[in-house]
Computed example of a mutant assay.
Amino acid sequence: MNDIFVFSMLPWASKLLHRSHMLSKYFAKNGMNVYHVEKVNSFNPLKLGRYELDRGQVSVLKIYGLPYFKGVSKWVFRANDRFINSALKAFLENENILKASAVLSTPHWSFSAGRVENFKNGIFYDISDDYIAFAGNAKWKRLLSEYEKHAVEISVKVFATALPLLGKTGGKGILIENGVDLDSFETAEKIEFETEGKVIGFIGGLYSWIDYELVLKVAKANKGDLIVLVGPTDSKDEMDRLSSLENVLYLGPVDKNEIQDYYASFDIGIIPFLPESEYPRLKTVNSNKVYQYLYFGYPVVSTRFKQVEKLRDTILVSDSHEQFLANIEVAKKEAGECGVDLESISW
């Protein structure tokens, strides 16, 4: 059996669903022996550089290291490289794994994994976001740039979820967009929300890319409908303002093993992102929610960003708040028809 190590962005037990989870499930489904590798933050010197293994259909390899502290110290990155590399070598030796593949889901893993000789079947870097754009300070950006450059150098191929990200791949790039987890979505059970109107919903991170003023306008313009918001947030004031409205239900983050039930329960899916001019990172986004909404066949109303432009025959794309509100009225009158072959973009 082929051994493959998926170096993750989020823990396997995280409520949030990330592409690295999907990759691990897909590889296991196709008969591979999968290790989902995650870093566990610790300050205990007796744990740093050690590992724990939870065996399963997808085995979870937990390696103890220091928090990255948002890139304020190069020393922390270098120390984690040593801790992770040491734990990987010990694990591979103990399990007698001589030949394996590795998929890096973030740049952070590149030096620790790149110095392991056992990844003879190849290292592959999977770029699902512009991680450098995430960095909040110049030192952090420089460190991530160094690590991402190295990730590309050591990779046989580099996978990218969006066309603009292919520019980071050094000529090694292959476009592999996100998709739907059909195994989970086929078993979805609809939740009956208490409303006599439509259920207008959003699932995803409620962070700085959300146009909160637009969501507020949607709620106020559709008082007979229920606005359901699902996902983590760091915008407490904005969410408190929205939650004060009688027709807004904020549920917070939902476990990734139950999320399909919430997708199945909407009448209209919305994507209220800021314009790309205000949030340029949207140019590199390939959002799973686009396909997950479409899977259930209801209308989808979105602001304009690069990913949805090619789906404008299927999605009601809006260039202004006024058009977004008008498109919701259109969506209320029509049944959604998915114009995308979801089988071709499923895991």
Rank of each mutant, 00 (worst) to 15 (best):
V6P: 03
S14R: 07
S14L: 10
K15D: 13
L17S: 03
K29M: 11
N30C: 06
G31K: 08
N33K: 13
V34T: 08
V37G: 06
F43G: 05
K47C: 03
Y51T: 04
Y51D: 01
L53Y: 05
Q57H: 13
V58G: 04
V58N: 08
V60K: 01
Y68I: 04
V72P: 02
S73F: 07
K74L: 12
F77Y: 12
A79V: 10
R82Y: 11
R82I: 14
A87T: 04
A90T: 07
A102V: 02
L104F: 07
S110W: 03
S112T: 05
A113G: 05
I123S: 01
D126A: 07
Y131G: 03
I132R: 09
A133M: 15
A138E: 15
E146G: 00
E148P: 03
V152N: 06
V152A: 08
I154L: 14
L166N: 04
G171H: 03
G171A: 06
G173P: 02
E177R: 13
N178S: 13
D183P: 00
E186P: 06
A188S: 14
E194I: 06
E196N: 14
E196R: 08
G197I: 02
G201D: 10
I210Y: 00
L214A: 12
N222C: 01
P232I: 13
P232F: 06
E246F: 09
Q260A: 15
D261M: 02
Y263Q: 11
G269I: 01
I270W: 01
P272E: 06
L274E: 05
F296A: 11
G297K: 05
P299M: 05
T303M: 05
F305V: 00
K306G: 10
Q307W: 00
V308D: 05
R312P: 03
T314H: 00
E322N: 07
A326F: 11
A326H: 13
I328L: 15
E329P: 03
E329Y: 12
K332M: 11
G339C: 15
S346C: 12
